[in-house]
Design a protein around this nucleic acid. Structure first.
Lengths: 135, 135
DNA sequence: TAATAAATAGGAGCAATTACGATTAATTTA
DNA sequence: TAAATTAATCGTAATTGCTCCTATTTATTA
């Protein structure tokens, strides 16, 4: 039994796609992906629902890369790698916790702030973009 | 004796301001700040020189927040805190190194990538934006 | 000084995102 | 069920941060 959620058909479709997508998609990609099966979908609806999901805490923004904002419906604490060539984003499995609660309180004291969350992004070249395609 | 650098007067002014600025400025802020003393400065020149500096490795981008890219001429490895209310950015003094070389090679193996750099950003509320202004 | 190269101004153009009025769908109330 | 109310969406216009382009100016070289 799970919480009742009155999502409209389109909202539901957008959310499901975000959850299943492994590419940390852009709003544009969500729109293009759903357009074939939902021909009367509008781009504004995608943007608006992404905002709704973010406010609900269902998704988060990874950042803006190559001019487009990237989203992630995996709300577990993890880091990302982004290829500066093709802008592919990979999850960094955090078996190792890079940043823990001790660091939070350390930074909070040093900076006199309250920390809500953090992001770690590794930049580099993915194996597809390396000359030697050993993927 | 230091390396000869043939910067134009405007380029020099932009770079000096970036170095002295403690607010991790936007291009717009640089433009507005220099405009009074350099009335014929154009916004395009600020953007172009920021690109030049970035390619030269003199500055780096912290990211895009509230729709505007933020820059930092402090090239030492350090993290940032950003207030989600007022978008003030603070340096996190890294007496503690959060991410070291071991983590790089760990992630490189896990993700099959080559890492060039990384960014850590803490999000939260600064003391000015907290109800209790204990700053 | 003349020829060449680099940097800039100013404005047009672009692309991602947001805002808005009109319409449609869903929900509640009677 | 029907009417009234609320929420969601469409389509398009507007915004905005940034980039690009051309003419002009400034600096460098011969």
């Amino acid at each position: 039994m799970h919480a009742k959620r009155n999502f409209s058909a389109k909202r539901e479709a957008i959310y499901k796609l975000l959850v299943s997508a492994k590419n940390h998609p852009t709003a544009e990609w969500v729109y293009e992906s759903l357009k074939p099966e939902i021909p009367d979908l509008s781009l504004g609806t995608v943007y608006r629902n992404i905002s709704v999901f973010r406010e609900m805490g269902l998704i988060k923004s990874i950042g803006i890369f190559n001019g487009q904002e990237r989203f992630d419906a995996d709300m577990s604490q993890h880091s990302h790698f982004i290829c500066t060539e093709c802008f592919k984003i990979l999850d960094v499995p955090s078996g190792k916790k890079f940043v823990d609660g001790n660091i939070y309180s350390f930074v909070e004291k040093e900076c006199n702030v309250t920390i809500k969350s953090h992001n770690i992004i590794f930049y580099g070249i993915c194996c597809m973009c390396n000359n030697s395609h050993k993927c």
